[in-house]
């Protein structure tokens, strides 16, 4: 961090100083003659664009593995036949906890035998019902272990509908591939499809910030001393 005047002194005391300046002047001239800009800028752009493509297109493909569900379930078909909407199958237990994806026994109530034409149903009955093997469903909305999520408070107390968080999955006729983050093991639906983190629908993502956003708006609680929002232990365990 010597100052310019020190440097002058240093350089002038140095007999080689002038040579040095002359030499890099020379370099300058040579480059000027050949027109330096072109390739340098081109390469910059190549590097820039290449890593953007890698980052936005290739990277997500590498990061997430795609898995197929063991049975391609048709939500729309089932919603038509049951009386009580989602809660017909996705039930609450007596202790107020939420059972999530139905167990085999629940499905087997109707599907002891193959009922329809669907090859998927045939697989289901033959591979699972007949063998009394639980279906290893991949749960899109599976939250990490550190999260305590109460369906009871959201559905029963606050009266929220399923669609707000899960989207119109009830209208789907087939199950999309389950995408798993290879590094974290999370379902992609938690972090969101959009790599840029853009959210269009309330169900696009289920990150902490999404929970917090709604909580702030809906509950207005300020119980946390640290953040003046809902306290950490509301959703964490």
């Amino acid at each position: 961090m010597s100052t310019p005047d020190d440097k002058t002194k240093g350089v002038s005391a140095d007999t080689g100083g002038e040579d040095a300046i002359a030499s890099f002047k020379g370099v300058d001239e040579k480059e000027q003659g050949e027109g330096p800009g072109g390739f340098v800028i081109l390469f910059f752009i190549i590097g820039f664009v290449a890593s953007l493509i890698i980052g936005w297109v290739v990277f997500p493909k590498l990061l997430y593995s795609q898995k197929r569900q063991p049975v391609d379930f048709n939500h729309a078909l089932h919603v038509e036949t049951v009386d009580n909407g989602c809660e017909s199958c996705h039930i609450f237990r007596e202790d107020g906890s939420y059972a999530g994806v139905p167990k085999l026994a629940q499905c087997a109530d109707c599907h002891q035998e193959v009922q329809g034409e669907s090859p998927e149903e045939k697989i289901f009955v033959e591979e699972y019902v007949a063998k009394e093997k639980e279906v290893p469903w991949l749960v899109y909305s599976k939250q990490p272990d550190c999260v305590f999520f109460s369906h009871s408070v959201h559905v029963k107390l606050a009266g929220m509908d399923c669609v707000t968080c899960h989207g119109p999955i009830g209208e789907s006729t087939s199950l999309k591939p389950y995408e798993e983050n290879r590094l974290t093991g999370y379902s992609r639906d938690i972090w969101g499809k959009s790599m840029a983190g853009i959210k269009k629908n309330s169900w696009d993502r289920m990150k902490m910030d999404d929970c917090a956003e709604c909580h702030e708006k809906e509950t207005g609680r300020k119980s946390s001393v640290q953040t003046d929002k809902d306290a950490c232990f509301v959703c964490h365990k």
Binding site: M1, S2, T3, P4, K7, A20, S23, F24, V27, D28
Partner: peptide, 27 residues
């Protein structure tokens, strides 16, 4: 604060960009 010192190395200082950068930082 340390970078300009590095830029003052005899060889690095030969490169005009670094020479000027060092100079500007001193300023």
């Amino acid at each position: 604060e340390y970078v300009p010192l590095i830029l003052e190395n005899r060889q690095i200082d030969k490169i005009p960009f670094f020479h000027r950068l060092g100079h500007n930082m001193h300023e």
